[in-house]
Design a protein around this nucleic acid. Sequence first.
DNA 1: TTTATACTTGAACATATGCTCAGATATAAG
DNA 2: CTTATATCTGAGCATATGTTCAAGTATAAA
Lengths: 123, 123
Amino acid sequence: MKNDAVLREEEGCRVRLVHLDRVNRARSEAIPEAEMERLALTFKVLGDPTRLKIFTALAGGEMCVCDLAAYLGLSESAVSHQLRRMREQALVRPRREGQVLYYALDDGHVADLLRLGLEHVRE
Amino acid sequence: MKNDAVLREEEGCRVRLVHLDRVNRARSEAIPEAEMERLALTFKVLGDPTRLKIFTALAGGEMCVCDLAAYLGLSESAVSHQLRRMREQALVRPRREGQVLYYALDDGHVADLLRLGLEHVRE
DNA sequence: TTTATACTTGAACATATGCTCAGATATAAG
DNA sequence: CTTATATCTGAGCATATGTTCAAGTATAAA
């Protein structure tokens, strides 16, 4: 089979030779934009060494902000900023005890994602 | 139990009240820095809407660069730049057929990570 | 109340990221 | 060889990101 490519035109703007069937399949199977944005945000929060260290530390049990700051050698402000981003994506969860906030992984997905990611980089 | 916190001193620089036991446990369970960097890079590549659209499109079957460009409404240059990053983390794999490069997901981990991530954002 | 502790927040800054543009490379056909 | 197609690459630029600093809130103790 040679080539089922076709010349497409779209929104008045000429495009290249493409496999229209594949493009259309991808379009029909596409994930909603809003869901895609949240998925990207989730992975983006996982995609930073500092935050990953926080995640793996919390995988061993809950810790407070100043524990994490001491562990990472960072200011508590920096850690707090990071924890906020992680909270916003429901990846960690705080529990207050007096003045201290103990953070923990929010649900099983987080640990699963870490394990899978590690399997990949170790392969 | 009240508080097992202690005042630590480290590298001549005074730090706050921390739970030393928890910090030490985190330290002993820490993942090697180099591995952490690769893990962060992997998630970082997953953490962008454009690249996620490429990943999910490829989950339905292999596609060439210009197919992806047409699907995304982006230049082939932009797509090629993204595919390079994805290749560098062994997340996609090209197969040459004449002048055309067909890209596919590199291994099962990628699809698993996407599925897990979607489960999380849909919860 | 005042003081201290634990954490959060907003602004500022240096670095990183994603896209476009122009040009380079690779394969195929004449 | 020349020409065309498909993809890649480096530079440049606008925006996003991670940290620090200074100031703010929340809880507890004196």
